[in-house]
Design a protein around this nucleic acid. Structure first.
Lengths: 156, 156
DNA sequence: TATTGTTATACTCTATAACTATA
DNA sequence: TATAGTTATAGAGTATAACAATA
């Protein structure tokens, strides 16, 4: 009806962005499942691997998710033996979510796979082109943040 | 421990890709919710808007999702008045999922908003740069498909 | 016998609200 | 009174398996 802009480059770029993360998400989901992991739980694991034991409250903030949700994610990780809940030394309300040995080695494996994946994905592409891509994507992120899509809303 | 490649451009690009679609997904979810829509249901609506009434079986294939799942998505869309289930004229097993007037105008509104969003996102960026972005993203999609991430698996 | 869509069941991810134990 | 984490409840999205009606 109104082909003002019949599939311009912007439209194509946005479509490709969505397609790419659709593919990435689907692949991650199935490859993680075999190891008793899911994307959301893996996120938590990843975060613990980078910055050590955390309160659930802190995880909720870092994952941008409700505290109740973290309870469930940590439950799952505990059930699979990736983390434990340790008592906080000074605050008896709080629990420190801590990687087990199995959790630590799972994180290491994830990091290794991530590196390999990046190199499979971009290894054959000229470095300058990858740099240009990153630069443009940075601009896109900034634009999204300008448009108010950073962390939801400015609450008054 | 092993900073073989301390945050190379590929790593950054992949991180940005994931960040972008995280932001897009979060925003879409909250902006659709106000209208009785969700991302998965919107996908179905969008598809119907492009190519007319469909069997649920066809929708399941198009969305790459189980038939059972489509039953639920269509249930939701029917409940909100966006589609109806019409009997197939010749095959009494099948139902044609068909846009209502409300569904049609919702699709039109989505298309309008999509155009506006693309122009907000890329409007300020030089056309050549957007074209380069699209070209590179096409290459990334191709690479993902080479790596076997197109539609899951080649089943033997 | 194969296909279409359903019911039955289950799991993950997410949310809000009410509550407990502690600070 | 405020905070950390839980139960209770709910809904979306996804899956497989068994089954009905129809082809």
């Amino acid at each position: 009806m109104k082909p003002l802009q019949q599939n311009g480059p912007g439209e194509e770029a946005l479509g490709l962005l969505l397609q790419i993360t659709g593919l990435l998400h689907k692949d991650a989901t199935s490859s993680l499942a075999e190891r008793g992991l899911t994307p959301a739980r893996t996120n938590v694991l990843w975060h613990l691997g980078r910055s050590g034991p955390h309160l659930q409250r802190e995880l909720a903030e870092a994952m941008d998710v409700s505290p109740r949700n973290v309870t469930g994610l940590v439950d799952g990780l505990v059930a699979e033996g990736f983390v434990t809940r340790e008592p906080h030394p000074r605050d008896r309300r709080a629990t420190l979510v801590t990687l087990t040995r199995r959790g630590t080695s799972a994180v290491r494996r994830l990091e290794r796979e991530h590196e390999e994946f990046v190199s499979l994905l971009f290894g054959a592409m000229p470095t300058n082109r990858v740099k240009d891509l990153a630069r443009t994507l940075r601009a896109v992120v900034e634009r999204l943040q300008e448009l108010g899509m950073d962390s939801g809303w400015e609450e008054e």
